[in-house]
Amino acid sequence: MHAEEKLTAETFPAAPERATLEGKNKFLGFWLFLGGETVLFASLFATYLALKDKTNGGPSAEELFQMPIVFMATMLLLTSSLTSVYAIYHMKNFDFKKMQLWFGITVLLGAGFLALEIYEFYEYVHEGHKFTTSAFSSAFYTLVGTHGSHVAFGLLWILTLMIRNAKRGLNLYNAPKFYVASLYWHFIDVVWVFIFTVVYLMGMVG
């Protein structure tokens, strides 16, 4: 099948992300990249665990973390994961408009998450928890900040794809791109599950 062929719902393949060799390569290459990302975040988590009690006189995790804001952020990101699943569902059904709609919702939820995180960091800095305060603060901001920058990158990426393809609809050239972007978005959520558990919840337990 040619990448730019005009397709109909009938001729659209069941697994559009892997219908061309380029798609197959992209699909596999991205999964491998996620394997590498797993190790990247693992290193950040491991360091955080080693340094989390070294507060150097600054506020500790127990004093800082507030459950409501973390809970809200978690709900936003989890829901955005579901909406991107919906987007891919509509992609497989060759319904371009609905796919764009659900990706749009995903982007909005992601932006909400990012805004909460920025607000949260702003608050922490005011409470004397700066990047330079202690080993704990450096490790915290680097781990959570790296995740946040992944969210920001993911937002820009999905937005770019949506705008770039707004007029031409789905084909086998852009279907793998959308699919891979959604994988990235889910992976961000996977990392967040560990962040809210290991950093926030375990931090609040003390």
């Binding site: 080693a50 070294k54 150097n56 990047f131 330079t132 202690s134 080993a135 450096s138 680097t142």
Partner: peptide, 18 residues
């Protein structure tokens, strides 16, 4: 890089680093 250029404390024992 953080420690040397941006005031991080990962490896600075004085601030709890290791």
């Amino acid at each position: 890089m953080m420690d040397r250029l941006f005031g991080g404390n990962f490896f600075n024992p004085a601030a709890g680093g290791n």
